[in-house]
Nucleic acid binder design. Structure first.
Lengths: 136, 136
DNA sequence: CTAATTGCAAAAGCTTTGCAGCGCA
DNA sequence: TGCGCTGCAAAGCTTTTGCAATTAG
């Protein structure tokens, strides 16, 4: 039994063709931050006959199951990435659209501290740096 | 001549009723983070006859003019706040929806540092902490 | 007077949902 | 077999746009 199938079962989801295909795609895609539309198009190009609505449904289920993380970088559309367990934030190049991942423990700690100082408990956060190449 | 009128002129925008009303509303609203829909409804309640499309257009112009800042907290819709010149980030309580502003110079510096380390220049950022009351 | 601005309604994106049929367990 | 899942098309939401009428300077 393949790895994908196990992950799906563990998530309480039936092992169906669309789900397996989407999970495989997310695991193998060179580009790690895909929109639902991206996933849909890549499946079509790969000859898989999956509906866009199903892509949305499956990605939403994967998110609920903790398999993927959904980001709302700018607004307009969401992008999804596989949750590999290593938390990181993102840097988006405003010229090329390229997405760079980074992790900074100091910032993580400061965030907790700030929440504490205001009498709150940090449950999550979203940090996106918008950058451009230094010579452009 | 009122303060609002001057600000509009400075931004190169004609002083029209919808623009003045929206600017006044943003300056006086107790709630500082309003969606276009919020602004629209508040204007209607105040007896002002402004179209929703105009609200969107005006807010977008204000953003371009640097009068307001647009945030995409969660996705789905944007919220706007007057740019008072004091940069800050936001904390959103996931229970109450309350928005708390904060500023942390250390985090700001770290962000620049991180961009630099990757060979980029920081042009902007979005940091939102999702929190909840400690005793809930 | 003239170009900018507005309101309305229609359109555009992204995402969700209803429903009948199909497929996994 | 039965319930979950899928595909399609339609609907929902926020936001944008076309256009004729209106208004500021």
């Amino acid at each position: 039994m393949s790895n994908e199938n196990q992950e799906l079962r563990k998530a309480g989801l039936k092992v169906t063709l669309p789900r397996v295909k989407i999970l495989q795609l997310l695991e193998s895609a060179s580009e790690q931050h895909l929109s639902a539309e991206d996933v849909y198009k890549m499946l079509l190009e790969a000859g898989e006959d999956v509906g866009l609505a199903t892509v949305y449904r499956v990605l939403t289920q994967f998110e609920a199951a903790g398999l993927v993380i959904r980001h709302n970088f700018d607004g307009g559309h969401s992008v999804f990435e596989l949750d590999r367990g290593d938390h990181h934030d993102h840097m988006v190049c405003t010229d090329t659209g390229q997405v760079i991942e980074f992790h900074n423990e100091q910032i993580e700690e400061l965030q907790h501290q700030i929440a504490e100082e205001h009498g709150y408990e940090l449950t999550g956060h979203s940090l996106v740096l918008y950058v451009k190449k230094k010579d452009s």
